[in-house]
Each structure stands twice: as structure tokens, then as C-alpha cells.
Design a protein around this nucleic acid. Structure first.
Lengths: 109, 109
DNA sequence: GTAACTTAATTACTTTTCGTAAGTAAGTGT
DNA sequence: ACACTTACTTACGAAAAGTAATTAAGTTAC
């Protein structure tokens, strides 16, 4: 049972951002529209989960999928206005990580 | 294999925030030091996971656990400076959620 | 003094999600 | 024809989450 007393909009926003990989996918797309395999290799997510996350973000209206029927065909993912508006938040997280995360203390590769 | 090209500090910061419940726990503690059961009921997390998350956040230096040997004994959780410095980020998420999350589109209770 | 209650957990068990690897469909390059 | 690339999907074992019951230490109620 969820007996939360928090703002539902805030909770919803947090639920999007707190799903594994989702934040990194958005962050990566802030540098511009990109193809599936580019995102995949830049953040180290598996195809299975990237496919899932992009679909989820598309449903939330954060990410846009565009098919360019060139030859070879090209499929690009980009941020919608809603997605782009997360830039200030990402900037804050960048600042925080620079101020507080010790380089000894990062994730193992 | 993680072949990420992102800043390791940013990745680490994101990995903290993108764990389920962790963001809400921090957000809740921004309103001041609180006891276990207060956090539990305010964000709707189970004791099992709250215990886990608080321990994790204590290890990361974001949360501080203090035992007050009064009668009755009181255990309070609060944010460290590192934790308090996440306030601007939370403010950005609040703003974003107000601007972009439709009230029809919130989580079910 | 013992039975019921509270807090801060922990343990046991089930369900959901993740991660790895392999497979697929459509097309390209040689 | 054959290998290669892209954008996925499927299968399956492993890890994490969710639910509920239990515990330990102390409090209050009678």
C-alpha cells in the first residue's frame, strides 16, 4: 500500500529518473540526436535494456524516435522539449558529482 | 563489459540517484532530521528496503545516523553536507515535474 | 509482573527486473 | 553467396524488489 504524502507529480518524475539507465540515456541524448548503437556503446547498456528504456521514454514523451528512409535506413533518437528541459537538472548533478564524488570512489569498469 | 565514455564521477552520482527509493529518501530528509518510521510512512517504502537504502546512503556519506540515548531511545537520520548539497537538484526536479507531468499521468496509489 | 505496544530493524519467501548471450529481419559491401 | 551492420527480440539464470512475519529492546497500561 502506498500511503505517500509527497507531491504525486514529483513522485512520478522521480520514478522516471530513478529507473536504472534512464538518466544516463537522457544525459547522453542531451548532446544531440543519436542512433541506437551510439547510445548503446557510449553508456554501456545492453541492447535489450536500451530498447526497453527508449520505448518507455517515448511513452513518457521525453524521447522522440525518427526513421529516416535513406539508404542505408537511419533511425535516430532525440529529446523532446520535455526531455531537453531536464538539462538544468543534469547540470546540477554534474556539479554535485564534481564537488563530492571522490575519484577513488567511482564505479569499477 | 562497461565500455562507457562518460565522466566516471557523473556516472557514480547517477548510480546513487537512480536506485529505486534513494531519491525520495533524500528528498524527504531535506525537510530535516527524521526517524526511521517517519520516513517509512511518508514515502511509502517498506522497512526492509528503507533499512537497506539508509545503510547504503550512510556508506556514500550522504546520510548520517545518530542515536540519542534518551528514554525512549531515539534514532535520527539526517543529511550530511554532501546530502544537503543535492537540494538544488531536487528543486530542479520539482520544477520539471510541475511543468511537464500531467496530473492524469501520475502513479496510482 | 505480564501483556500489549512501539521502534528499528532482520529473515524468509515470492515476484519482478536485470544482464548476458543468442537469434532475427532488413539491408550493405565485396 | 557470404560476411557484416543495425535495431531489435527472445530465452534464461541471477540479482533486486516487494510482502509479510519475526526479533530485540524498551514503554506503557493494568
Amino acid at each position: 500500500m502506498n500511503t505517500s504524502q509527497l507531491c504525486p507529480k514529483f513522485e512520478k518524475a522521480m520514478s522516471i529518473l530513478s529507473q536504472r539507465w534512464t538518466g544516463l540515456v537522457i544525459y547522453q541524448l542531451l548532446s544531440g540526436p543519436q542512433r541506437f548503437c551510439t547510445i548503446e556503446s557510449s553508456i554501456g547498456i545492453s541492447g535489450r535494456l536500451l530498447s526497453d528504456r527508449l520505448k518507455h521514454l517515448e511513452n513518457e514523451g521525453v524521447v522522440k524516435r525518427e526513421v529516416f528512409p535513406e539508404t542505408p535506413i537511419r533511425i535516430e533518437y532525440s529529446l523532446t522539449e520535455k526531455g531537453k528541459d531536464l538539462r538544468p537538472l543534469m547540470k546540477e548533478l554534474e556539479k554535485w558529482s564534481q564537488n563530492w564524488i571522490d575519484s577513488e570512489d567511482t564505479l569499477e569498469d
